[in-house]
């Protein structure tokens, strides 16, 4: 019995403390070091933030370079298939141009009418504040099973602050949750930690919650509200972060929301520098 206990303690101690050969550090010392780093990072001692920011900037850029070969092959195959389909695409685009020409007159009329109505209502045109936007390149888009976020190549040096909304083609993508000097992390709408107040087509208010899957879900809908497929979902702007009326997606038959922008296909995004959350993010 005592021999077996001795064996256990020898193997246990050896596993924790063994060094020598290729092992320059014992597991125990590294566990302690990892714990110290973890708690320093969590409780944010004043000197850790700039160090963390510097490490982030360096690692994100190395990640971008290291991922270049893996991006090349999908891009090349996409380019080849685009080249082969150029004739069909040309015909399709011609048909689209014709369609949009007919719609253009309609849009012009509606825009004028909208502006006139806004003057009557004395409300601000919501896009007025969107002039100060910044284009950013997506550096890292590592698909984690637990966190849905991207890294962009603009940081505090470009005026980006925590909480700023991020869009692509005027469709909402997410918001900035971490800033470094030369890069920032954007939390995507489908992340489990994402919550956004939204308005539906018919004026109903709800919260769009990330599910960790590709489609976020609507929560806190009015009682007895019947969700219909293909209902447009917009940011309500009640949180003071997102511009009201920013389109987000459409409801599907499962009751979740199909986003207008595929979060896995982002290469460039725009950050709205005017709007910033003043509260605690």
């Amino acid at each position: 019995m005592s021999v077996s206990r001795d064996d256990f303690s020898i193997a246990f101690r050896s596993a924790l403390l063994q060094r020598g050969g290729a092992q320059k550090f014992s597991v125990l010392s590294l566990i302690f070091l990892a714990l110290i780093i973890f708690f320093l990072d969590i409780y944010g001692a004043s000197f850790t933030k700039p160090i963390r920011g510097f490490i982030n900037d360096v690692v994100y850029r190395v990640t971008f370079l290291a991922s270049a070969p893996t991006k090349f092959f999908p891009k090349a195959s996409q380019d080849i298939s685009t080249f082969l389909n150029v004739r069909e695409e040309n015909e399709r685009l011609k048909a689209l141009v014709e369609k949009y020409k007919s719609l253009e007159l309609n849009v012009e009329f509606l825009t004028d009418e909208n502006k006139n109505l806004q003057k009557i209502l004395e409300t601000e045109y919501f896009n007025k504040n969107l002039s100060n936007i910044m284009l950013a390149k997506v550096l890292v888009d590592k698909n984690s099973p637990f966190l849905k976020s991207i890294i962009i190549n603009k940081g505090t040096s470009a005026g980006i602050l925590k909480g700023m909304p991020v869009t692509k083609d005027n469709y909402l993508v997410g918001r900035v949750v971490e800033t470094n000097y030369l890069s920032s992390r954007v939390l995507l709408l489908n992340d489990l930690n994402s919550r956004i107040p939204v308005t539906l087509d018919k004026g109903a208010q709800a919260i769009l919650s990330g599910s960790g899957l590709s489609n976020p879900v609507l929560e806190y809908l009015p009682e007895d509200y019947e969700l219909i497929e293909d209902t447009n979902v917009f940011a309500s702007g009640k949180d003071g972060i997102f511009a009201s009326g920013t389109p987000i997606g459409k409801t599907n038959y499962k009751g979740s929301v199909d986003l207008f922008v595929d979060p896995n296909q982002l290469s460039f995004v725009t950050v709205n520098l005017n709007i910033q959350n003043k509260g605690n993010l």
């Binding site: 064996d7 020898i10 193997a11 246990f12 050896s14 596993a15 924790l16 063994q18 597991v27 590294l30 566990i31 070091l33 990892a34 714990l35 110290i36 780093i37 973890f38 320093l40 990072d41 969590i42 963390r52 490490i55 982030n56 690692v59 994100y60 990640t63 890292v140 590592k142 984690s144 966190l147 976020s149 971490e178 992390r185």
Partner: peptide
């Protein structure tokens, strides 16, 4: 941790636990 956006040190800790169990099993 930096790439995934986790607090620093958490993945290291998790990997070191794997090393610890692996070394223990190897010793035994």
């Amino acid at each position: 941790d930096v790439v995934m956006g986790f607090p620093l040190g958490i993945s290291s800790l998790s990997y070191l636990i794997i090393i610890f169990v692996g070394t223990y099993v190897r010793n035994k």
